[in-house]
């Protein structure tokens, strides 16, 4: 086949893909406006069920990335700022790149909690249960439990933890969760993108279909980023036969002996 024919086919394939993606986006938008969520007795949408990120791309790297050693290619999940890049302060992107070269530093690899927002898109399922006073997110991995009161109670004072302290309220059919008290040690993904001290996260959860839960998180962290950024990861309902399983992380963790020392710690 001649070069021109190949090029012609490439253009055709590219155009078909764009058309199909446009059609998908249109269908998605239509579904969003027409969809009426199932509701609990209190009138709020029922998010109950087992969910998992529709794509594992964000777990590997929240920014656009090509296929590399152990990582499939994927698009950026950063929807703001435009361009899909994390708005690192000068010097911080270099720190992330250094983390990428030293993935043994990843807190999750050492059985620590994922931290918000990473806990919402690991390559393991999570379950949401709720009543009129709480939305509870049970993450299989590391047995992460997020208890999110929606009854208007105040934040804990001077608290610090991997997943911080969450408080939720409803904005129409959207659950808005504010997270404070994050310990500043979490990574955002396996590629070494990271958060620092003083981070403040606002999450938005909204059912966009029977089996699709839209998740967005806006992170404000002036110690690391020049401006807030927002990531978006659609979650997909897992089939009815999927249930959460135990995840005793320390039990079978035998990797440490084969990893370089982390931050100068002696092995």
């Amino acid at each position: 086949m001649g070069g021109k024919s190949v090029e012609h086919l490439r253009v055709m394939a590219g155009n078909s893909m764009k058309l199909a993606m446009l059609l998908l986006v249109s269908i998605g938008a239509a579904a969003q406006t027409e969809f009426t969520p199932p509701r609990l007795a209190d009138g709020h949408p029922n998010f109950g069920g087992i969910w998992m990120a529709a794509s594992l791309s964000a777990a590997f790297n929240v920014e656009e990335h090509g296929a590399s050693y152990g990582t499939p290619a994927g698009p950026s999940v950063i929807v703001d700022p435009p361009g899909g890049k994390l708005p690192y302060l000068p010097g911080m992107r270099e720190r992330a790149a250094d983390n990428d070269q030293h993935r043994e530093r990843d807190p999750v690899g050492q059985c620590h909690m994922h931290g918000v927002p990473r806990v919402m898109f690991p390559p393991f399922p999570l379950e949401i249960v709720q009543d009129g006073n709480y939305v509870v997110i049970l993450a299989e991995t590391e047995h992460g439990i997020r208890i999110i009161p929606t009854d208007g109670r105040p934040f804990l004072k001077d608290y610090s933890a991997w997943n911080g302290d969450s408080r939720g309220h409803w904005d129409g059919d959207t659950l808005v969760v504010e997270v404070r008290g994050l310990n500043g040690r979490s990574w955002l993904d396996q590629a070494g993108n990271f958060m620092g001290a003083g981070a403040h996260v606002v999450e938005r959860f909204r059912l966009t279909g029977k089996d699709t839960l839209d998740y967005q998180a806006t992170v404000e962290n002036p110690a690391v980023f020049s401006r807030p950024f927002t990531l978006r990861v659609p979650l997909r309902r897992r089939p009815a036969d999927v249930e959460l399983l135990e995840y005793g992380c320390i039990e079978g963790e035998r990797d440490a002996a084969h990893l370089p020392a982390v931050d100068g710690e002696k092995k």
Binding site: L23, S55, L56, Y69, G70, V108, G109, P123, R236
Partner: peptide, 23 residues
């Protein structure tokens, strides 16, 4: 559309407690 959804659907299930490249 189904073909495209298959192309862009989740790579299931893959695990990564730690990054492969760490070790």
């Amino acid at each position: 559309l189904l073909q495209i959804l298959c192309l862009f659907g989740p790579v299931l299930p893959a695990s990564a407690h730690h990054s492969f490249t760490a070790e």
